[in-house]
């Protein structure tokens, strides 16, 4: 059992506010991903949970234990670092067994657990090597095995895949997911890669300038972004935004076309449409094609809708050319609305 509760955590570096009143509940055995651009405070938050950084104010609880005053070693956590942090003077086996040795376990138990976790990460043939003799991917496996060998309540990972090349990252991602599902640990995973976040997480917390803007499961995050920021951050490319003027109670005019939207409460809203949620049609949003990028599975077409750049993902066989006037028909129930006054989502 290890549920984590982060309460009112703030962190200031001199005058710079890295974290601003963070509150987050992470359930037992949940895989939580902290997602955000660099400098948003996600790593700082992870390091505060780990005990490598002290919060300026606030509390961290694991189950019924307040841990923010404890040194890292007494928190029941283990951590995987971005640059692996494999001890270069020890063999792979000694690296994996390091924490167990520090806990003064007997040699036989250590050897068993080292073997078990090495097999789990498929590095049992490397046990007598030193980190200098390993590739990046192998080092990452050692780092994960070392963290898992501790059988921690909570495993913390700080961009563990970001130093790997693209193919290896895909492979390790799938493997990590499997390994962590089988182990009964709660995991907190920091990344700036939204695909990684979506694929791994039970829940994703999107962070921006020291705040958590939305914490939700990946599909919810994708379908119903809570703020303008999340809508403009998640998705590749992210949502398109078009200005909408009120016509009457629940009807809004976007680029000259009427759409059913939220009941009136202000005169202007932002209409948000995912690139893949439009179809080429005989009527709809009038658009001029500016650029066509064939990406293999589909075409990424940049158009101008009433002077606003708009990106659409169209079928690869679509016949369009730069300069064409086309019509894009959005899927009605996937349109989202945001209030430009406070950048929050408006429900219909």
């Amino acid at each position: 059992m290890a549920a984590i509760s982060i309460r009112n955590i703030s962190k200031r570096f001199d005058s710079y506010e890295a974290l601003n009143d963070i509150n987050l509940e992470i359930h037992d055995r949940e895989f939580m991903v902290l997602l955000g651009a660099s400098g948003c405070g996600k790593t700082t938050l992870l390091r505060i949970i780990a005990g490598l950084e002290t919060a300026s104010s606030g509390e961290v609880w694991i189950d019924n234990r307040r841990i923010d005053h404890l040194p890292a070693k007494d928190r029941g956590i283990s951590m995987v670092f971005q640059n692996y942090a494999i001890f270069p003077h020890l063999t792979v086996a000694d690296n994996i067994g390091f924490g167990l040795k520090m806990a003064k376990m007997n040699a036989a138990t250590i050897a068993d657990r080292v073997q078990e976790n090495a097999e789990l990460m498929h590095i049992e043939q490397l046990l007598s090597r030193y980190s200098g003799e390993l590739s990046g991917g192998q080092r990452q496996r050692v780092a994960v095995a070392r963290a898992l060998a501790m059988e921690p309540d909570v495993i913390l990972m700080d961009e563990p895949l970001s130093n790997l090349d693209a193919l290896l990252r895909l492979e390790m991602r799938a493997e990590l997911k499997g390994v962590l599902q089988r182990s009964n640990t709660t995991a907190i995973y920091v990344t700036h890669d939204q695909v990684e976040a979506m694929s791994l997480a039970d829940r994703v917390s999107v962070m921006d300038t020291g705040k958590i803007v939305q914490a939700a499961d990946p599909m919810e995050l994708y379908r119903n972004p809570a703020t303008h920021f999340v809508a403009g951050f998640i998705g590749n490319p992210p949502m398109n935004f078009l200005k909408a003027q009120i016509v009457r109670s629940n009807t809004w005019k976007v680029a000259g076309v009427d759409f059913t939207g939220p009941s009136a409460f202000s005169n202007e809203l932002l209409c948000a449409i995912r690139p893949e949620d439009v179809l080429l049609a005989a009527s709809g949003l009038p658009a001029e094609v500016l650029m066509i990028e064939p990406l293999g599975p589909h075409l990424l077409v940049t158009v101008s809708v009433a002077g606003t750049p708009f990106r659409a993902i169209l079928d690869v066989d679509t016949q369009v050319e730069v300069g064409n006037q086309i019509f894009l028909d959005p899927i009605q129930d996937r349109i989202r609305w945001f209030d430009p006054a406070n950048n929050l989502a408006v429900s219909i």
Binding site: G51, K73, A85, F87, G99
Partner: peptide, 13 residues
């Protein structure tokens, strides 16, 4: 690297 020390701290040192 400082991470080596930090890793050791998280591993019970």
């Amino acid at each position: 690297p400082k991470e080596l020390e930090e890793a050791a701290w998280t591993l019970g040192c």
